[in-house]
Design a protein around this nucleic acid. Sequence first.
DNA 1: AACGATACCGGCAACGATACCGAAAACCTA
DNA 2: TAGGTTTTCGGTATCGTTGCCGGTATCGTT
Lengths: 340, 340
Amino acid sequence: MQHTGVTIRDVARAAGVSVSTVSRVLNDKEDVAPETAAAVRRVIEELGYASSLAARGLRSRTTHVVGVIVQDMWHPFISTLIKGINEVVAAHSYDLLAYASARRNVEALAQWEQQQVARLNGTIADGIIVVTPHAATYRTAFPIVAVDPHQADTEFPAVISTNRQGVLEAMNYLLGLGHRRIGFITGRMDLQSAVRRYDGYRSALQEAGVALDPALVVEGDYSRETARGAALRLLTQPHPPTAIMASSDDTAFGVYDAAAELGMRIPEDLSVIGFDNIAASASVNPPLTTVDQFIERMGALAAEIVLKLIQGQPCESRVHKVPTQLVIRQSCRAIESVHS
Amino acid sequence: MQHTGVTIRDVARAAGVSVSTVSRVLNDKEDVAPETAAAVRRVIEELGYASSLAARGLRSRTTHVVGVIVQDMWHPFISTLIKGINEVVAAHSYDLLAYASARRNVEALAQWEQQQVARLNGTIADGIIVVTPHAATYRTAFPIVAVDPHQADTEFPAVISTNRQGVLEAMNYLLGLGHRRIGFITGRMDLQSAVRRYDGYRSALQEAGVALDPALVVEGDYSRETARGAALRLLTQPHPPTAIMASSDDTAFGVYDAAAELGMRIPEDLSVIGFDNIAASASVNPPLTTVDQFIERMGALAAEIVLKLIQGQPCESRVHKVPTQLVIRQSCRAIESVHS
DNA sequence: AACGATACCGGCAACGATACCGAAAACCTA
DNA sequence: TAGGTTTTCGGTATCGTTGCCGGTATCGTT
C-alpha cells in the first residue's frame, strides 16, 4: 500500500466485501443489497474515503468535472467569468476545476494550450472551457468551448461579446456630448476583442464624419499601469483629447491615475469611458461610465454550452454573441463649444 | 482506442518505437539516443500529445501540481490569495489547480473537505492548500496547508493573519481620534478569523476603559448586503455610533451603502474602517481606511510551506502568522467634542 | 578474434477505479 | 421437490502511464 490515503481496497477489506461491491455502492448501482450498501457506506464514512479522481476518470471516462484553462485566475475578468461558470456548473452538480500552468513560453502559446487540453482531456474533465485561447483548433473530439478567442473563426463553439458594437455605442454617446477629439487606448492587439473594439472606435468616427487623428490612438495591453503611461502621452501632447475611450476598465483606471498626476479632474477636464463593467468600476471616484459586457453571463453561457456538448447534444451555432450595454455613470460630461 | 485524444501508444506507433521509449523521452531519462528522442519529440509536437495528468499521477505518484480547495473562486479574498499562491508555485514550475465542488451540504462541511482532499490526494496533486477549512485533521499523511482555518489548533500547518492585533490597532486609531461610541459589525462567527477580530474590538475597548455597549455590536457574515442591513440597524437607533469598525472591506462597503441611503456623509458624519485591504478599497469614495492583511503574502507563504512539505522538508512551526498593518486613507475623521 | 562493457530499447506489471461476465444464493412457481 | 428466475456479489480485464528488468546491438580492448 503506497497510497498515502484510503483506497477502495481498504474499504472493501474493512467492510468484508469485494472491491466490485464497493464500486457499485459508490456509483449507486442496482445490484446491491440494502444492508450491504449501508455497511459499506458506514465504512466509507468512518475511513473518510473518497474515490480518486484520477483513477475514476481513467477507467470510466466520465468525471462529472468541468475544467477551465486560464493563464491567470486572478484577473477580474477571468475571476468574474469563473463565477458565472461556477453557478451553472454547480446547478448541474458538476465540479469545477481551474487549471493554470507554470510552464508557459510566450512564443508557443497555442501549443501550450494544446498541451493543457490534452492533459485534462477525458481523464480529468468531461469538458473544457478555454479562456482567451490562441489556437483555433485542438486535436481532439472533445467538448470544448472558447471564451473570447484570439482567432475569428474557431473549430469549436465560442462565446464572445459584441465588442465592436459596444465601443460604437459608447463613442456615439461621447460624440453626442459634443466631444470631437476623442483619444483611444487599445487593448492587447493580439486579442480578437481588442481589434474589434478598435474597429468600433474607427467606425464611430467615420460614421460621424470625424477624421481619425493617429496621434490620439495609443497602444495599451488592458493593464492599468501601461494605460497610465499611454494616458500621460495622450494628455501631455500639444492638442490633447477632451475624452478618452479606454479598451477596458483597468485601462480607464490607468487614465484616472494619469489625470490625477496631471491635476486634471474627471469629468470636468476629461471624460472617460471604460469597457467591462467590473465590480470596481461602480465604486471608483467618480463612478466610471463603461460598457457592460456581462462577463458572468458569458461564463454561464459557456458553461451551458459545454454541458450540452457533454450530454451529447449538438451545438447549433458556432459563435455565441453576448450583447453589451452602455452603463452611464459619472465620468463623462458634455463639452461646451470651445469658441463660445 | 476509446480515448478521444492522442495517447502515448499513438505516439509510439507513429514514431516507430515502444511506449517505454516515449515515456523515457517525456521524462527526460538518460537511456535514449539523441536522434530517437528528437524523432519522438517531433511526433509529439505533430500530434499535439500531452500525457494525461490522471494516468501519470496514478502511476508515478508525482504530478508537479499543487491543488487548492476552495468553496468559491470568485470572492476577492480567495482570488487574491490564489494570486499569491500562483506566483510562488509558478516560480517553482509547479502547476496550479483550483477545485470547487458543487456537492456541498452545509451541515457536513468538514466531511466535504475530507472528500475533496481524498479526491485530489496523491493522484492529482502533490500537495494541497485548503482555504478556510472546517476540519482540524484529515485522514492522510499528505502535504496539506490551511489558510485561515476555523479551528484554532490544526494537525497541519496553518497560515493566519494577526486578526486580533489588526482590529486592536484600528480601534486604537479610532479611539485616538476621539471616538467613543464605536459600532462593530462581525464577520461569519463560525470562522476563527471573525472571532479573533471581535476579540480585538473588545480588548481595545477594555484597554481604553470604554464599556462595551451590546447595542453597538451587530452580527454580519462578511457580505456587503448583510452588512448594509446591519449598518442600517446601527445607524437608526436612538444613540447611534460615530464610527463603525467593519470586519471586512465588503462589510465596510455595506456601511457605505447604508450611509448613502440615510444621507450621511463619510467621514464627516461617520467614520468607517474595514479589514482586508482588497483592491477596491483604495478606489471607493472616499478611499477606505482599512487593515491590510497582506492576502497575497498569506497565499505565497502557504505555497512555500506546501512546496517545502512536498520536497520532504519538515515544517518547523505549526502556525504561521502574517502581520497586519493599518492603512490610513480618508474614511475616518477626528471627532469634535460633542459638548463644545 | 573473442570478450566484456556499455548504450539503447522493448516487455511486463502495477497504480486505483469501473465494466463486464458469470457464479452462487435466494426466491418463486407448479 | 424440481426447475427456473431473480437478486446479489466476486473475479478479471482494462483505462494511460511509468518503473523495473532484461535483452539486443554496438563498440572498444587485448
